[in-house]
Design a protein around this nucleic acid. Structure first.
Lengths: 149, 149
DNA sequence: CTTGTAATTGGAATGATTCCAAGTATTGTT
DNA sequence: AACAATACTTGGAATCATTCCAATTACAAG
């Protein structure tokens, strides 16, 4: 559960930019998110983090997650009124939730589609964030014969 | 606070299609939403509805709103973890929330942009709902000289 | 008019999140 | 290294939107 040096640098830099200190707990929470990139809830982050550091508290996990979101290192994902989930993928992307399993996947968004979406707004409207949520089912694809070469 | 005959018919039909009865309270809640189309919370609907029917309960307002959403007559709008808001606009649209006032406006979405959005999904992914949320600020437009004719 | 079912009601319960006050760690200064 | 000043963490209590529940009440069909 060690943060790679470059990742640690990225964390420290983002925290410093926001005038925040780098702490063991923030590092642990960030490392936990990066290790399982499966959109965990705060509770899930808490129980995973506690395996490494049994003294960490739920309040701290909430605090750290909020800090990381504030630094722009993590995105909060909200489906309806389900518990908030957290996502360390910084590429522009939408989310898709499977109705059956509840699992969430990332859907990459190209720069051009982002531009298109911004053009939808009436003059004067300036969006600083944009969230696109899909809800649906995943149909197993007929696996094409995977001919090797 | 009377529902227009055609609107009442629309409500009854949608309820019947979903195997639900038409009741005073459902009619009242629907009428309340249509009268102020400002994305009220359940609490706001409750206090507005109570002006007409002081005996209606908050639980009933929640029940009715859920029923209306289930019938497809109303959409639930969720910004982060704010209380759910309700929207009787059935045209395809996104939402824009003003960071300053918290007010929400509807952004119409053309059929073509809807189609474009659906193409973003990987094969096998079938979306049955799609929600697009903007967050930002509204800059007052330099009012162009409104030349008549 | 009866009878079965669905809807409404008020209040209690739930559960994610936030708040709080006390303790601990970290940073900059001498 | 010691100190002060400030930021962070912690456990538990508090919040608050929403849901649940058990007891009426309304409705629809025979």
């Amino acid at each position: 559960m060690e943060l790679e040096a470059t990742t640690k640098a990225r964390l420290d830099e983002a925290l410093a930019r926001a005038g925040q200190r780098s702490t063991r707990q923030r590092e642990l929470v960030f490392a936990t998110l990066l290790r399982w990139m499966d959109h965990p809830t705060a509770d899930e982050v808490f129980s995973r983090a506690r395996e490494q550091t049994p003294t960490i508290s739920l309040a701290t996990v909430y605090n750290c997650l909020e800090t990381l979101v504030g630094c722009g290192l993590v995105r909060a994902v909200n489906y309806e009124r389900e518990p908030t989930r957290y996502c360390p993928n910084l590429n522009e992307h939408a989310h898709f939730q499977d109705r059956v399993t509840g699992r969430i996947s990332d859907i990459p968004l190209s720069e051009s589609i982002m531009a298109t979406l911004r053009t939808l707004l009436p003059p004067g409207y300036e969006a600083d964030s944009l969230d696109l949520y899909f809800h649906g089912t995943i149909r197993k694809q007929p696996s094409k014969s995977t001919s090797k070469s």
